[in-house]
Structures are given as C-alpha cells and as structure tokens.
Write a protein that binds this DNA or RNA. Structure first.
Lengths: 208, 208
DNA sequence: TAAAGAAACTTGTCACTGTCAAGATTGAAT
DNA sequence: ATTCAATCTTGACAGTGACAAGTTTCTTTA
C-alpha cells in the first residue's frame, strides 16, 4: 500500500496528483452535495465523501471541524440558493396575488429540485446554529418571505402573524410532499392539483 | 467485564432475570421511544436501545428485522397516538370554525409534546412504507383531517384541495416550530402568537 | 537564499455502529 | 419424553466519525 514512498523513476514532474488538492474545500462541498442527494442525510458518510473527492478519509477534518461542520457549510449553500430562487421569482410588475403564486411556485420547485438540501436546511439537529454565516444566510432567505408578506400587512393583523401564514402555507405543502404524503394512495391529492392550490392560497391571502 | 459467566453460588433460583424477557418487544419499543426523544433519530443506536431494555445487542433483531423495522414500529405507535389526539379534539357541538381551532391546537400540541415521534412520522427514508400496518395507521390519522375539512367542502373547490389546505396550515407551522425557525431571533414570531395564528387560520377557512 | 513555520494531506488507531451466523436456553406441541 | 420453534446470547465483520502523529508542500521571515 505504501507505493507512494516508492519513487517513480520515469515521470518526475508529471505529477499523478499533487499532494495539495488546490481547492479541496470546494470539491468536498460538491461531492457532499451529490452524496447527500443520492443517499440522504443518513446514509451519508464523511469517508465516502472524502473518497469521492479523491482524498484520504481524514482530509475533510482540515476544512470542516466535523460532520456537523460539513453539513452546516452545505446548508449555507442551500440557503443561498434558496434565497436566490425566491429573489428571482420577485417581479415588481406583478400584483400581490400574482406574486404569491409565482413565489410559492419557486418555493415548491426548489423543494422538489433539491430535496436533500431543502430537508437539510430545516434539520436543526444536524446544523450548527452557533455558526454566524449560517444565521446570516438563513436570515437573508427569510427576508424574501417578509417582503412577500408585506402587501398583506394592511389587514389589521400583526405583521408577524401574516408572515407566519405566508410562510407556513407553502412550507407545509413542501414538507408533506417531500415526506411522500402527497400523491400517495391514501391522499387523494396528486401533483396536478398543485397549481390550483397556489391559486387558492393566493386568493385566500388576497381576501385577508 | 465477563462477570455473567461467573456463576453465583448463593442465589440459585431467585433468577436475576429470566432468559426469556417476557415482553421484550414492548420493552424495546418503550426504550426506543425514550432514546429517540433524548438523542434524536440520528444519535439513535440499536445497541443502546437493547442495553436500555437489558438485553444483548443482537436481541432486537428477533423482534424487528432491522433498524428500519424498529423505526417503523415506533412510527405506527406515533400515528396511532396522533390520530387519537386528533379524534379526542373532535366535538360535535363546536362550529366548524371552533373545531378548526381546537384540532389545530391538538395538532401543534402533539408536535411539541412528542417532537421526535412527530418527526419520525414524516421521515420517509427511515420508514418502511411497504408495511401495511404503517399504511393503515397513517391512513387512519389522515381520516381525521378529512373529517376536519368536510364542513368547508361546499365552497366550490375540489375536496382534495380543501384537504390539502386544511392539512398544510398546521403542518407548516408545526414543522417550522420543530426546525427551530419560530421564536428564533430572526423570526419575529414567538409562541404567544400561536393562539392568534389559530384564530386567523380558522377565520380564513371560514371565509373560504 | 536558507531556515523556520504554518497549512494541507496521509496513515494509523480507537471505540462504536448495524448486521449476520452460530450456539445456548426455554416454552410449546407432539 | 422428544422434537421443534421461538427467544436470547456470544462472536465476528466491515464500516463509521474522530483523534493523534507523521509527511509533504507552500509561505513567510531573516
């Protein structure tokens, strides 16, 4: 196994692979993200992640303190992506009601497109919420929701209540969807209803 | 460590513990439930569960195929409890609106009172959804939500849509709450708002 | 330019995990 | 009384996260 110590008499500089990876942190994040989508958060293995990045099993420790550290870094990426998706869904020309439909669709599309990342964002025990960058990233994404709720705040209800309502409406569906409770046999609801659901909720908020 | 093999010359029949536990399945379920609430689904260990029940590490395999089997059995208990809680919240004398408030409160109370069980119910990858008993139990709990949605079905909207709405409203809040996203610094919403939230959602459904 | 020190990565090891196989003990059926 | 199945134990195996200590490279300093 110690063939590394055996010097290669032929290729001297060609370098099979440099001892220093260059950007291992990035590589680990990408490998980790892929592994997460494939195996889920359990079934995830730091060693497998390291192997996929082409380094030894102990290498990740130099870039992330431990598994929680890696998951936290991945969640930061996730919150950034999520916030971006919500920001891209914003369009000043839309009516509040139309904006709800558009943003909710983006919310649900993200949850469906990145199920593992989405779950990770709300998997409290796996993340280090002491981490400031994580708090920043999540707060920034949360700001998008606050803005989305803004037009409905002139209804007499306290803003926090409106925000919670605007948030929990898509979040409940997203989570139920990822939990496999929608489109199942027991539930009569299939994916085709989702667009109608968006319309209905928007209408509901409009009449608030 | 091997003091088990040392025979005790004094007490012969008093039986430290019989070879057959009697109801190990039950004991494992209770130990597992306690362990789950303490450590969470990760951090959970089959061996620790066995030890807490006072048996060897391989004993659980004779009652549950594997870890997924134990989790599935626990989820069945959870769905039963959950369905029961929702059933107890039902009261024919209440108006539909009042019924929503009461049932939603039960929903959220359950999620808060049994956070680990609640999470497990919706942790698809950890459960064996081939298991018929699990499907039955979850379907039965789901029936409670269908009944809860019934009074609002005469609004022209398709029943599945109403059901999804009635379900996702409390579920979104419950999940956000367990994810630690409510009552946090970034969120302006604290627990005292919850009662107001229930009132608001009930009113919303009433105006549907 | 040389030496020192820090950063990046490796190997080796530890206790612990889930699962399987094989043996020991008990209760039930014949 | 004997057989048989169910229940539980011990032992083993490969895989895990984490830590310690060593090796290699880059960077800084003098």
């Amino acid at each position: 196994m110690n063939r590394k110590t055996r010097h290669n008499p032929e290729q001297h500089p060609p370098a099979k692979r440099p001892y220093h990876h260059g950007d291992l942190r990035r590589a680990l994040l990408e490998a980790g993200r892929a592994l997460l989508e494939e195996k889920g958060a359990d079934g995830f293995s730091l060693r497998a992640c390291a192997q996929r990045a082409g380094v030894s099993h102990a290498a990740p420790a130099h870039h992330f303190k431990d598994m929680k550290g890696l998951f936290t870094a991945l969640a930061i990426e996730a919150f950034d992506l999520f916030g971006e998706a919500l920001a891209n869904a914003r369009d000043g020309r839309l009516t509040p009601k139309q904006q709800i439909v558009t943003s909710y669709r983006a919310y649900l599309d993200f949850a469906r497109g990145h199920p593992a990342l989405f779950k990770l964002m709300f998997d409290a025990l796996r993340l280090d919420w002491q981490d400031e960058i994580l708090n920043e990233a999540s707060k920034k994404a949360y700001q998008q929701l606050i803005m989305l709720a803004k037009p409905f705040e002139d209804s007499g209800k306290p803003p926090p209540l409106i925000q919670l309502l605007v948030w929990s409406l898509p979040h409940g569906v997203a989570h139920l969807q990822l939990a496999g409770q929608i489109g199942h046999s027991k539930s009569l609801i299939s994916d085709e209803w989702l667009e109608d659901y968006l319309e209905m909720t928007a209408e509901l908020l409009d009449r608030l």
